[in-house]
């Protein structure tokens, strides 16, 4: 087998990556695990999601990546479709090892928790999303925005609270890029960026959501973002508010 050549990429790495792809497709776990950095095997295994019935691999590209790492793109094909993994490689003690891996393109996680809470307090918010609107809790009596929603207005104790539409435009108040698979539902979407967004249209209350294309983004507190409502995956489900850097 002759390895392909890639500009700026050591020949031995290209060879290792080619072999790695075939090992993954063949389910040769011993070889695959030996290619992973030993201190992060668990995280790597749960980061990317392969296609069902995976049977073959094709190395698409290897290129010099960020932080002195090299990025390899491998397309895996199975009976249930295909998936492209981007693995990032580092040389440690003369051995090339995978230190990060993810599915590309970058897609936001969808979790089974996207629905109103058990007490129904936030139901008008979720129902608003179904109509394509961001709605948040507001007290008409004392003009206080409250988030997360409460059973009564904490300002004046009014019980008749309203849910006006809020312009989904704001600034990043804080953010985190999550790499750890805290739930099996995020496998295939790691890493992803969650932002806390301050909304001038809601008295600077802050709402939280995933930043689209956040993996490689230069995320900064104070950056302007705009919300987009992502439709539900099925008719029973609820849409989700996502954010994008302006």
């Amino acid at each position: 087998m002759t390895a392909k050549e890639f500009p700026g990429v050591p020949a031995d790495l290209a060879e290792v990556v080619e072999r790695h792809g075939h090992a993954v497709a063949a389910g040769d776990n011993a070889t695959v695990l030996a290619d992973f950095r030993p201190d992060r095997v668990g995280q790597l295994l749960a980061s990317a999601r392969p296609p069902e019935g995976m049977h073959s691999a094709e190395l698409l590209d290897v290129e010099p990546g960020p932080d002195g790492l090299f990025s390899a793109f491998i397309r895996y094909t199975g009976t249930g479709g295909e998936a492209v993994f981007r693995s990032r490689w580092i040389q440690l003690d003369g051995t090339w090892l995978v230190t990060q891996v993810r599915n590309v393109p970058d897609t936001p996680p969808r979790t089974s928790m996207a629905h109103p809470s058990d007490d129904g307090l936030d139901a008008p918010h979720w129902e608003g999303l179904r109509r394509g609107e961001l709605r948040m809790q507001h007290c008409p009596r004392c003009d206080r925005w409250t988030w997360s929603p409460r059973p009564i207005c904490p300002g004046c104790h009014a019980t008749d609270l309203e849910w006006p539409v809020v312009d989904p435009v704001g600034r990043i108040y804080s953010w985190t890029r999550t790499w750890q698979p805290f739930s099996p539902e995020v496998t295939g979407h790691l890493p992803y960026v969650v932002v806390v967004v301050e909304l001038p249209g809601a008295g600077n209350r802050r709402i939280l959501g995933v930043l689209l294309d956040g993996d490689g983004a230069d995320v900064r507190i104070g950056a302007e973002v705009k919300g987009e409502i992502e439709p539900a995956a099925d008719p029973e489900g609820y849409p989700l508010l996502r954010w994008r850097l302006v």
Binding site: T111, S117, S174, T176, T178, S183, Y192
Partner: peptide, 27 residues
């Protein structure tokens, strides 16, 4: 960790504390 957190992929205290720590560092 109710739906307004976990619906957006925030499942763990680590992520909450990361958000707050990030602002402590950056701002």
């Amino acid at each position: 960790m109710g739906p307004l957190l976990s619906g957006h992929g925030v499942f763990a205290p680590a992520q909450i504390c990361a958000l707050r720590t990030q602002r402590m560092l950056e701002v």
